[in-house]
Nucleic acid binder design. Structure first.
Lengths: 216, 216
DNA sequence: GCATCGAACTTGACAGTGGCAAGTCTTGCG
DNA sequence: CGCAAGACTTGCCACTGTCAAGTTCGATGC
């Protein structure tokens, strides 16, 4: 019946063959771009297929279903963020640099970042995903361990959670455009201001802990 | 033609009338529950209509479109979080209590919280929404201002961003189940550990700022 | 060179979705 | 009562993700 007639919206100039060559890669790239542009909810498999110049069901062949595409994106994202943070671990300022690298990753790969932290989108039991995520978490812990002051009585977990929360929260709020109108267009400009805020925040936290210990 | 035959999946026991009475409220409540249970992406207007016992197009009458429902949820969320934080502002521990209240709101109203910080879901130019959001932001600033140590040279904006980021990041990571397996089931248990982490984080930040000032 | 086998696609169908236009019921007000 | 307007219902459309079945093509073995 059919004789390979599908063309979608692909320009005539692009040579069309039955086998795409690297459809898996093309789908991920298009999906990340779509997530970044219009959000994960609005991302459509058929639209992605159209852009790649394949039929509407082709992406599902490689990824199983919609969640499969997001699983691949999240896995790639956890690998990328590990690569971003790993080089700065170990030095005296490793923890601050790690936090900055975390934020930088989020701002440079907003599509990946959005998917990574929305587990309802993907297959949470995928082995590759789990391994990539564990590796990323391990880097966080390493960074905290190396930066822990020798005279501090605080536990590592508390430091990891505090640092991770601060970095993650800033990145999230920034990407949601909740900070842009309050801080100006470029996030690196006010890094010092935020670091100062963290110092003050530490003082306030200490005051409260002392107060509890004294009155309790 | 028709004689008011629609019934959806509503139990027979529920008296059915043409006018629901408070469909607007019912739709918001059902939508929040759906977002909490299956995520905003999977929330369906038709499913909500079914649960409310009205026809599939009834919700759109009150909210215009899907984004209109999310706009109403976000607006309600910003009002609720303002009510949650407002009572704790002013005291010596106001900033820490405010952060705790912020996290508490997120964990108690995960449906609202998810929608509030995903602007791609709703109508960002809605006047009610903008007013509610500004009021919530104002409370954050008030809390920071009241808690600012008199001897601190840091600026308020830096403190607000640092505290907001930490609270927001923790809440987000917790709701994404990224912390649950690392911290145990109940977030209040390890509040002291996290506060200790914030103290350490402040020390690390100060060290880095001093280092930069010394070497630069 | 040639058959053939499996991977990489296409095609077509299905149930479900959001949005729109047009119709219908009901309440409240004169 | 009459009637206008608000609160819905109904039916339709284009679109979506998923599935089953068919088609094409490249590699492998002979």
């Amino acid at each position: 019946m059919s004789s390979f007639g599908y063309r979608g919206d692909v320009p005539e100039s692009v040579p069309r063959r039955y086998h795409h060559g690297d459809l898996r890669r093309a789908v991920i790239d298009a999906a990340v771009a779509e997530v970044q542009a219009i959000g994960a909810a609005a991302m459509s498999m058929r639209e992605i297929a159209r852009r790649a110049g394949v039929s509407h069901a082709a992406p599902a062949y490689h990824f199983g279903d919609r969640a499969g595409i997001f699983t691949a994106i999240a896995t790639e994202g956890f690998r990328l963020i590990t690569e971003t943070i790993a080089p700065v671990v170990g030095g005296p300022d490793g923890f601050m640099l790690g936090g900055a690298a975390y934020v930088r990753f989020a701002l440079e790969h907003p599509g990946h970042f959005e998917v990574m932290f929305r587990p309802d989108l993907y297959h949470g039991d995928d082995p590759d995903l789990l391994a990539a995520r564990e590796a990323a978490f391990a880097i966080l812990y390493d960074t905290a361990e190396a930066a822990m002051p020798s005279d501090s009585a605080a536990d590592i977990t508390g430091l990891v959670i505090a640092g991770w929360s601060a970095s993650h929260g800033f990145a999230t709020l920034w990407l949601n455009s909740n900070l842009r109108d309050k801080l100006g267009p470029d996030p690196t400009t006010f890094a010092a201001s935020i670091a100062g805020g963290m110092v003050t925040l530490g003082e306030i936290a200490r005051r409260q802990l002392d107060g509890e210990a004294g009155s309790g």
